[in-house]
């Protein structure tokens, strides 16, 4: 799966383990949350970097206590109109200080990249060919003036403390 990160397509260091597939706990795998929960003892002993896949509808409280164990969290976007992951991403970054990779997987389209970046995603698995082609030209459509603080955005000097401006 093409992986878009920090402005370009990069080699994916991670292997995604599909639901129900057996494997021994190794490093750099992304497993479903339930799978990890069932096998956590094995992972605890191995100390390898681990990624979890979070389906929408899973509450943050269900895994927040284990956050420090994850080097990567993949949030599933089943349809591009499903906006739940945007809130989850912000909460993970802003409230829970998650520093690992926050990856959007599922139906990730070109016009969603900018709002996702602003909510704290930093990696995108791209399946849509049009989106892939557009990103390859280095073009992320969006706006440059924002009326809300975004993740990792410095305030713009001025009266309204929540204003932000992209430095593009």
């Amino acid at each position: 799966m093409p992986l878009y990160k920090n402005g370009s397509f990069v080699q994916d260091q991670w292997t995604t383990i599909p639901e129900g597939e057996a494997m021994s706990p190794a490093g750099h795998v992304i497993v479903p949350l339930t799978w990890w929960q069932a096998e956590r003892q094995a992972f605890d002993d191995s100390h390898v970097p681990i990624g979890v896949r979070i389906d929408p509808g899973i509450a943050i409280d269900d895994f927040i206590a284990d956050l420090s164990r994850f080097a990567l969290i993949a949030l599933v976007i089943p349809k591009f109109q499903d906006g739940r992951a945007y809130s989850t991403a912000r909460l993970l970054r802003e409230r829970h200080g998650f520093k690992g990779e926050l990856r959007a997987v599922g139906e990730v389209l070109i016009d969603q990249i900018q709002p996702m970046l602003r909510c704290g995603f930093d990696a995108f698995e791209i399946t849509d060919p049009v989106t892939q082609a557009a990103l390859e030209t280095g073009r992320v459509p969006g706006v440059t003036h924002f009326y809300q603080p975004g993740v990792n955005e410095a305030p713009k000097a001025g009266a309204r403390p929540w204003l932000r401006q992209a430095g593009r």
Binding site: F80, Q81, D82, G83, Y86, S87, R90, Q114, P115, M116, R118, C119, V143, F146, Y147, Q148, G150, R160, W162
Partner: peptide
């Protein structure tokens, strides 16, 4: 109005 305009988190509400 300003705060809600193109809000990145709240553009794909139910």
């Amino acid at each position: 109005r300003q705060w809600s305009s193109i809000h990145p988190e709240f553009t794909y509400l139910p």
